[in-house]
């Protein structure tokens, strides 16, 4: 079946290392996306017409453009048009942050506008000032709503980073291909075993995270 290839030498370790590369890129991108997304999401609730128009166009671009196309535009297009040389890692982090920021800002906007007006009014009636209202009433509620959703964003980011092999980053799929090519003679069926293992590795990486997200969402339901 081709699973024996993985036991040869340090093949399994190399495969895990490849998964590490994908994780590394996705975690950096998630961190950037959450940071920028919160800022943009908060700005979107201000109802400023310029910001609204900008964010609508931005969100629509991200909504309809495949991430792979964005990757190609940044990796191949930027080099040609702007004459700058971006490494594959940097361009993938730029693209995934661009995508993630849009997703995150929409979540933040949803969470912020989902807070009832009554919450603001009640805390004011209790004599709280604006700062106290935000710190003791609004922000704790938003954080509870946002944490499960941001954790969910992490799994989606991990899944999307599998695309980086298309611009030449050596991550888990590429390592898998290398292992298959190297053992073509000795075990011709390696493709099945190796890709089944990668399939499972991705599942093992994402499943616990999505379980955590579901658990927190249930736990913090009002």
């Amino acid at each position: 079946m081709g699973f024996e290839v993985l036991l040869k030498g340090n093949n399994m370790l190399r495969l895990l290392g490849g998964l590490g590369v994908a994780m590394y890129i996705s975690l950096i991108s998630v961190a950037i996306s959450i940071f920028l997304g919160i800022i943009l999401g908060a700005l979107m609730t201000l109802k400023n017409p310029v910001i609204n128009a900008f964010s609508r166009v931005y969100l629509e671009i991200v909504r309809i453009m495949p991430q792979m196309v964005l990757l190609f535009i940044v990796y191949f297009g930027a080099t040609k048009v702007l004459g700058i040389n971006l490494s594959a890692e940097i361009s993938s982090i730029i693209v995934f942050s661009f995508w993630g920021t849009a997703e995150m800002s929409d979540l933040v906007r949803g969470a912020l506008s989902g807070i009832d007006k009554i919450q603001y009014e009640s805390s004011m009636a209790l004599g709280m000032n604006t700062r106290q209202t935000y710190f003791h009433v609004i922000i704790p509620q938003i954080i509870r709503r946002l944490i499960p959703l941001s954790i969910n964003l992490i799994t989606r980011m991990i899944k999307t980073t599998s695309l980086v092999m298309m611009i030449g980053i050596v991550e888990v799929l590429k390592v898998g291909q290398q292992i298959i090519e190297a053992n073509r003679k000795s075990s011709p069926n390696a493709a099945f075993g190796v890709f089944a293992t990668i399939f499972l590795l991705y599942f093992l990486a994402c499943y616990p995270i999505s379980c955590l997200s579901k658990y927190l969402e249930k736990k913090w339901e009002n």
């Binding site: 999307t160 599998s162 799929l173 890709f195 990668i198 399939f199 991705y202 499943y207």
Partner: peptide, 9 residues
């Protein structure tokens, strides 16, 4: 919980 690329491969 797995990417389409991996499923297709």
């Amino acid at each position: 919980n797995t990417p389409l690329l991996v499923q297709l491969f």
